[in-house]
Write a protein that binds this DNA or RNA. Sequence first.
RNA 1: GCGGGUAUGGCGGAAUUGGCAGACGCGCUAGACUUAGGAUCUAGUGCCGCAAGGCUUGCAGGUUCAACUCCUGUUACCCGCACCA
Length: 802
Amino acid sequence: MINYNEIEKKWQDYWDKNESFKAVNNSSKKPYYILVEFPYPSGAGLHVGHVRSYTAHDAMARMRRMQGENVLFPMGWDAFGAPAEQYAIKNHVHPKQAVAENIKTFKGQMKKMGFSFDWSREFSTTDPDYYKWTQWQFLQFYKNGMAYKDTIPVNWCPTCKSVLSNEDAAGGVCERCGSKVQQKEKSQWMLRMSDYAEDLLKGLDDTNFADRVKLGQINWIGKSEGVEVDVDIVGGGKFSIFTTCIETIYGITFFVIAPDGKLIKELMPRVENKDEVLAYIEETANKSAMDRTELNKGKTGVEVKGIKAINPVNGKEVPIYLGDFVLGDYGTGAVMAVPAHDQRDYEYAKEHNLEIIKVIESGDISSHAVEKGEYLEDKKAVLVNSGEFDGLSVKDAKEAITKMLEEKNIGRRVNNYKMRDWIFSRQRFWGEPIPMIYCDKCGWQPMKEEDLPLLLPDVAEYEPTDNGESPLAKIDEWVNTKCPKCGGAAKRETDTMPNWAGSSWYFLRFMDPHNTNEFASMDAMKYWNRVDWYNGGMEHTARHLLYARFWVQFLYNIGLVPHKEMIWTRVSHGMILGPDGLKMSKSKGNVINPDDIVREYGADTLRVYEMFIGDYQQDAAWSEDSLRGCRKFIDRIVRMKDIITDSNKYTNEVLANKTIKKVENDILSLKYNTAISSLMIMLNEYDKQEEVTKADYSLLLTLLNPFAPHITEELNEQIGNKPICESSWPKYDESKIVEDTISIGVQVNGKVRGTVDINVDDSEEVIKEKAMNEENVKKHIEGKEIVKVIVIKGRIVNIVVK
RNA sequence: GCGGGUAUGGCGGAAUUGGCAGACGCGCUAGACUUAGGAUCUAGUGCCGCAAGGCUUGCAGGUUCAACUCCUGUUACCCGCACCA
């Protein structure tokens, strides 16, 4: 009985000893950088989902290496974050201890899977040698005016006395204790990401991301083009509104302003119903913490009495309302309300009994679409009740009215983005300390670069403070320092960076991981050029990717990286679901532990199975039965070794060349499942052959090697070949793939009635002839008029009869 | 509500991008070998039908000699964002 685990260990040691997968900077070979998202090393250990994407890209890396490329396939750890901190609080150990243990587990598991990572480049985001550069880069953001402090509400749990992330505050309830979450104002570091909105959109053209990934980025950025218009207040003063539907401006019957915005604060002295207004503002402040879905039913709000605004195009005086559907931090925090043509305005007007004026008449006058604001689709829609613009189409009116407002100097074209600046502070211990110092005299000062890294202190208590400060705030000897400018007493920033920070540039560090002078040298980055192929989960295609691209674009703008986009192709894998078809989770008890599978079936079987499980980019449910099928496949290959003959010729050239081509192309296009299936077909064909030659067998082993590297190396050694990982990938000969005779289907009126064998050089006439004489076909065309015969060479014949 | 994805035998899934639907694997059926089989090998296996034949890619239409594939409408499930003016 063959012991797979023993063989696996043997070859893993061999690869380690020989540094088989080491990527060499500045090698003359063609560089190719394959990156899989580095994992958060949780206590749960490696997940079968990790195994899927790592195996897939391991296969790609192994094949490309055999094809003579210098493949960079690195691995590291994204280890800052809440779980390690929670663990530390509970067990009174430093989180770095917990992280070290988890990394050890993960790494051991990965080694057992035989992934061909270049372990010499390994690092963790929590290594001071690494986060020194994360801090250094933050200082560059600061020095270039890209980091600033602002007061931002945070989710606050009054029971736990802790700041919560949006995830932990889902539903407006603290995930841990169930208390109602409040909003609390905190001064936080922000990065001016919104300045990059346009560049982040444009940059997508310089990437090869899948369309669905690009769309995710575009939607997240959320650009809308519109017009900002100044609105005068009766009795003096003015404010601005933003609209994307300027053509409806004559239909304004009221304005709505955000209860959480600055405008209402300015207007307060003139408000007649102050109590009512203040109460609504208060109500909104509490509400915004709650899950909005629950409150989405009605359009609440109050009138701001005593203040009327003037429609800038027709002088009409209309009331102003507060409404929480208007957001303080988007656009100008105020909107013109045109209830006839906007769903939300319509609902609001109905709720508060406000006037509705129709300003667009659709081609279909009775159409409800007009009220729903769908007139843009309707090419016949024209303006009415709009003074000089009556009769214009929506498109023309948009332009004409914008021009008129521009000329009067009360309107301007503006783009707005949903994407906001990046809130960069976290009130947590286990993150990169933000290297800023506050001095009463000099204000905020950046640390001196030569003093980096600013290390996290070694203490044993990480409980949050009562007032929502980071646990670091309690550690006086750490907080108290000297001002880098005046040398006087000063205090350190106690907030730390978000988890997203360290993962925004790690792919650059892999290019030059041991550099002590720079985060990565320009030379190294120019050699590797960019990440050629980046794989990660679908859940990261929006935010992580956007943060990373923003970070890189900034570094590019200050001359520190060679390209504005450092990631070329981005692909995402589907999830591995439990045997029940549901997402694996401890509570559901449907978690599959890769260690168990490796022990029972071997790493190669697990690898082959996960590649065979289905479309790589699609979710797939675990099946132990299918897993066994893959083990059977490997067992059959092992048994075949005993019957091979000495010949170094392929028994079937067509099969050999066809399979090389298929496996190679499939690996390059993420179609791993069909690559495996073509190897199964190859094995089946070998079984039917009179003999299986050494050449046949070696080829099968080589083609399977990227998926099942251990057993193939072992068998390959046993038949006296040199290691596959030191050999080259076979080249296929296109001319040998073409078969002389093929069988094609013959249809009558689109229905297949038979098959005929044709030669490649048969003329259309000959093929037609053969088709018409096929027994069953004859039966179906007998006595009927032949309208036409379609012959698609090498594919099909279709005879149309009446 | 908006955006994205998915839908094919008993199951996981293929289909050269408009050209023989169901590759490959699992499962199942029968047989061989066997003291035994959750091992191995052989044959069969979309559905209905004794058969000729008919039907079949969520559903309803359309384009085409030909549609899983393209177009229109529709349903269900999954994921992301959620009042973005």
